[in-house]
Design a protein around this nucleic acid. Structure first.
Lengths: 212, 212
DNA sequence: ACAAAACTTCGGTAAATGCCGAAGCATGGC
DNA sequence: GCCATGCTTCGGCATTTACCGAAGTTTTGT
């Protein structure tokens, strides 16, 4: 349920019961436990109850646990079996991960558009200008519910890439400009020739290697 | 058990059974589970098995969960009932917390001795010089096992203070210089007149209010 | 070689947990 | 006003869990 919410931000009790594959009554009981524990919050809308993750701290908690699970789970897995494209650039839920995701993230920090704070990454004054000049909206779907920006531990690459609403908006822009292409149900993201120049100029990266 | 290990770094199965108040056989079973889950690691020494937390990522995980528990737990508590001294300066396991802990932490970041990175706080080149010039050892007990520096969410004050081995070494130095005094079994830390001037000069703080 | 210490494995028990279906409560549509 | 929908509460069942003590294993000390 928490992982489903980590992706979809807002889900009803019925939907959460469906993803967990349990009866609505069981789901209801479990959802109250999660709510009492402060992990999720509930909002009554009509005759539905819409649940979402309480705040960014809880998101980090969930990410930390899933990242740990990935580390443990992949301990005896052969990572080299992953297609090269997936290692290089892949979707992490609804934003960009893999080597390309980490490169973009690093470039935005070293370019002074983002900075690290004890509460996580933050958009600088420069960054706000940069985002709007590139027509990358500060506004994204479910803005009021979703963590705008966070760091995502990248288990295929060992670094960090950007997550949260702004990261999702970034990916949407890249796809819109045909710099990247995604296919429904596939985790791999393909970098177009246009993207090599576009992303390269925008972030000062040499991406000719990344297509692999 | 994990919280005990977060403080003591290395504990034997017997000791962990004692802190959890369960029979050695039960502890053994549980420790196996934690080990399989990759949360703790085991080292055979003589006839004992010494357990410690696997790595810094797991430390972060534990800290995140305890921090969340603090947030939730303190939601319906009356914080104002805490003695003023505890709110101002208190022990957080083996290092300095409370308002004073946060002030010292902030001063070290803004002084350029520490900086934030995605993996947590880091000592800068300046900071290393500063630490050694103040005779605050980079070396501390269990150095090889313990996280050297991390951020601790401070639930009495709402900010962050420093944790980890370096923070423990800092407190030890402050106590040694009689800037602060601790009493066995007590969480409150008292700031001496010497400390008001000493810490004040060292970190550029006006601490006359903090004694409260 | 023998005993003690530290830990694990095994068998059994009591408590907690997850789960479901039926019934009960709100809300929205007709 | 009435029914359908979405959710919760309740009672009860099956499974799982935590736990202990006894017995077994390895290592240390004498």
């Amino acid at each position: 349920m928490l992982i489903a919410l980590r992706f979809d931000c807002v889900l009803s009790a019925k939907e959460l019961a469906a993803v967990a594959n349990i009866a609505p009554s069981t789901a209801s009981e479990h959802l109250t436990k999660l709510t009492v524990a402060g992990l999720i919050s509930c909002k009554k809308v009509g005759r539905s109850r819409l649940y979402s993750i309480t705040d960014g701290d809880v998101c980090d908690l969930i990410d930390g646990i899933t990242a740990h699970a990935d580390r443990i789970g992949s301990r005896h897995e052969d990572k080299s079996r992953l297609p090269k494209a997936v290692k290089h650039s892949r979707l992490c839920l609804d934003h960009l991960g893999g080597e390309l995701g980490c490169l973009v993230s690093n470039a935005m920090f070293s370019g002074g558009y983002l900075r690290h704070t004890p509460k996580g990454p933050e958009v600088t004054r420069d960054g706000e200008g940069w985002l709007s000049s590139h027509e990358i909206g500060k506004h994204f779907p479910n803005e009021h519910l979703r963590c705008p920006l966070r760091l995502c531990h990248d288990w295929t690459h060992g670094g960090y890439h950007l997550g949260g609403g702004i990261a999702a908006a970034l990916l949407a822009t890249f796809v819109e400009r045909d710099w990247l292409r995604t296919r429904r149900g596939e985790i791999a993201v393909s970098l177009t020739p246009k993207g090599i120049t576009g992303l390269g100029k925008t972030f000062g990266l040499d991406l000719r290697q990344v297509t692999g």
